[in-house]
Simulated scan of single mutants.
Amino acid sequence: MSISEGSVSISVNEWNPVMKSVKKLKERYQKILGGTASTMEQELIARWLKQLDIGEAMDKKALAEWQERSMTELQERAKPPVLVRSRTRKFIWLAGAAAVLLLGMVWLVKPYRDYSARSAQQVPAYIEHSTAAGQRKMLTLADGSRVWLGNASKIRYPENFQPDKRRIFLEGQAFFEVKPDSTRPFFVYTSGLDVKVLGTSFDVKHYPADAEPAVTVASGIVSVKPVHEGRGWMLEKGEQLTYRLLDKTATVEEVDLRVALSWKDGELIFRETPLEAIAVRLERWYGVEIQIASPSLQTKQMSLSVKNEPLQTVFGMLSEAGDFNFDIQKRKVTVWK
């Protein structure tokens, strides 16, 4: 069967393959949207999209917009062509229909690509670094500042700092050596404290389980304030602020910087420190779990210096000085009187 007008004719059998192809493409597209497409059908659609250089997965909003527009366009593009009179040449219907469909798909994809470009501009890329228990890491930021990341800690910051500020998000402990820049203050945010400097060196410690985060200044001046509060403190070299989350009070005192910052150089120094607090630091340092079975030992004040010693040696020294027993089974240490 054929349809003819003047010298131009098209066979229905010739048009059917195009219609079938469009119909299959539409069916596969709808299956993917409904989550029922087979692996082969997903691969076929993926090949189309790859040729059109889509690049990234769509979010729900963009996908819905694309679906609505593309279905309309596919329906319009799939209509049989209007026959026109021509004395010089015949239409190559299969090639023409395929070209129209391809152009339609390219036009349909363009709004999504524009949407993706706008989204990429609005949401800055972030870099994240983390350490496990018993691990430390030294990093150099894009502005030249350096960060010593402590055990079981994590930091996150924009790939490119903003023109008016530099921001770091911290969970755990880190020592910062900030490159001076009076036009771009340097911020460190934790879940409890916000720290602001222009160019100095300082330590921030706030693990999720910590009830008393602390900030220690090694050089320069550091501004510290609790999250969502207007009041704050200005700290100078040698000062340490300890903030109590429970009652929202703080203590500022002078400390021995060698003791407070020794971890940065691979050493732990304790001076008249409760065994319970020492145990917490040793857990992060060696990646173990420490259980103090005798409550009377938790508050026992002890002094200790640790640098590259095996865990067995460390507890050997502690048990001798503190007159207690200990047992190490794999990654678990038990202490009792």
Rank of each mutant, 00 (worst) to 15 (best):
I3E: 13
S4T: 10
I10S: 12
E14I: 04
V22E: 08
G35I: 01
T36Q: 08
E43S: 06
R47N: 14
L49A: 10
L49Y: 12
K50F: 05
I54H: 09
R69H: 07
T72Y: 00
L74P: 01
E76W: 07
V82K: 12
L83K: 08
V84K: 12
V84N: 10
S86V: 03
R89G: 04
F91H: 01
A95E: 15
D114R: 12
D143A: 03
V147P: 00
K154R: 15
R156E: 14
N160G: 04
R166W: 03
R166G: 02
F169V: 11
G172L: 00
G172V: 01
K179M: 09
K179Q: 14
S191C: 06
G192F: 04
L193W: 07
V197M: 08
A214I: 00
T216I: 04
I221M: 08
I221V: 10
H228E: 13
E229L: 03
G232C: 00
G238M: 02
Q240N: 08
Q240P: 01
L241T: 01
T242P: 00
L246F: 10
D247R: 01
D247T: 00
D256G: 01
V259K: 11
W263H: 03
E276N: 03
A279M: 02
V280G: 02
R281K: 14
L282T: 00
I292M: 09
S296Y: 04
L297E: 11
K300W: 11
K300F: 14
S303G: 09
S303T: 06
S305Y: 09
V306R: 06
N308M: 13
M317A: 13
Q329P: 00
Q329I: 12
K330C: 01
V335R: 11
